[in-house]
């Protein structure tokens, strides 16, 4: 390697210092090439391929595939199941994001106090995030099933308990299970945001006579709002594309009550093998993902400006 290539300033700072012109070299490209090859192939290239496939009638049960223009998109617009699945995704994502961010933030506020065992509780809150989703889902089903432990305990009291057999109950169950998993992520992210707030601000508020609840609402929340927003968008994207937990807890049922867009896309593609139509739903989902990612980038920028 040549020693004349100067060491660059870290990204984000202005470019090279005057007098030492920047030289383009192959080195950075070689360094990023292997990782970029993986990522470009498995996201960018596959995305282009999926867009192409969405204009075909590709179906594994059909011998020939042909180009059918916008037909799949017309079909998707008229497909009640697509509309329903988007609404269900909306419910699911909103439920998980609102509950996770709310409770994740409150727990972070609690953990921001100094007390013995703080690390232990933080670890306990994150454990659900570490468990395999399928394991969590299988256990949730054992626990909440109509002939499970809670149901048989409540039966003795004469109460009927079978949330997974009712449409709204199944959705609420899914939301709660996924919230239980996700709270830890929000807590950890929010805690980092909270610890960046200088204690002076709280002292000033206390001197002004602010009560602790009002301090949380008027001082803490606005200061960590950008951090929470980022956590919310991350959770929204991952839950919009989530199928795993649904497989284990409800399998889309009962009566398609928990068939989100992600689940419907998977079903069209890999149960009915309508890969062309599945691609169309995937493209529609990708558009929604991209909108969310643009929000994510904007939220990052906003946070950067505020700091």
């Amino acid at each position: 390697m040549s020693t004349t290539v100067r060491v660059q300033a870290p990204a984000g700072r202005p470019a090279a210092r005057p007098g030492r012109p920047y030289r383009r070299r192959a080195a950075p490209y070689l360094l990023v090439a292997p990782a970029s090859a993986f990522i470009l192939f498995f996201t960018a290239f596959t995305l282009i391929y999926t867009v192409g496939a969405s204009f075909t009638n590709w179906d594994l049960s059909r011998p020939q595939t042909s180009f059918i223009g916008w037909d799949n998109y017309r079909r998707a617009l008229a497909d009640e199941r697509v509309r329903d699945s988007l609404i269900k995704s909306g419910f699911f994502v909103t439920g998980v994001v609102v509950l996770s961010v709310l409770f994740g933030f409150l727990i972070a506020v609690l953990l921001n106090n100094r007390f013995r065992g703080r690390t232990l509780i933080r670890v306990i809150v994150v454990v659900p995030w570490v468990l395999s989703e399928i394991a969590t889902g299988v256990v949730a089903r054992i626990l909440l099933n109509g002939n499970g432990v809670i149901a048989s305990a409540l039966e003795q009291l004469g109460i009927d308990f079978d949330p997974l057999s009712s449409k709204s109950g199944a959705m609420v169950t899914l939301i709660l299970v996924e919230t239980w998993r996700s709270i830890g992520l929000v807590t950890v992210i929010a805690l980092a945001g909270l610890q960046a707030i200088p204690p002076v601000i709280y002292e000033a508020a206390r001197m002004d006579g602010a009560r602790s609840v009002r301090t949380i609402w008027n001082i803490t929340l606005p200061l960590v709002r950008p951090t929470l927003l980022i956590a919310a968008i991350l959770l929204a994207i991952s839950n919009f594309n989530l199928v795993t937990i649904i497989f284990a807890v409800t399998d889309g049922g009962p009566l398609e009550a928990t068939q989100t867009s992600a689940f419907y896309m998977y079903k069209q593609s890999f149960e009915y093998y309508a890969l062309g139509y599945g691609s169309t739903i995937a493209v529609i989902m990708s558009v929604i993902n991209v909108v969310a990612i643009v929000c994510f980038v904007l939220a990052q920028r906003e946070r950067g400006v505020r700091r």
């Binding site: 996201t43 991350l234 594309n241 992600a262 998977y266 493209v283």
Partner: peptide, 26 residues
């Protein structure tokens, strides 16, 4: 600093956010 760095960074961020599901057919 190299040409295309920011674009590549954006692609990395993009794939950080997009889980594999929508690309699974391809």
């Amino acid at each position: 600093r190299f040409k295309g760095r920011n674009l590549l960074l954006f692609v990395f961020m993009f794939s950080l956010a997009v889980p594999g599901l929508v690309n699974l057919i391809a």
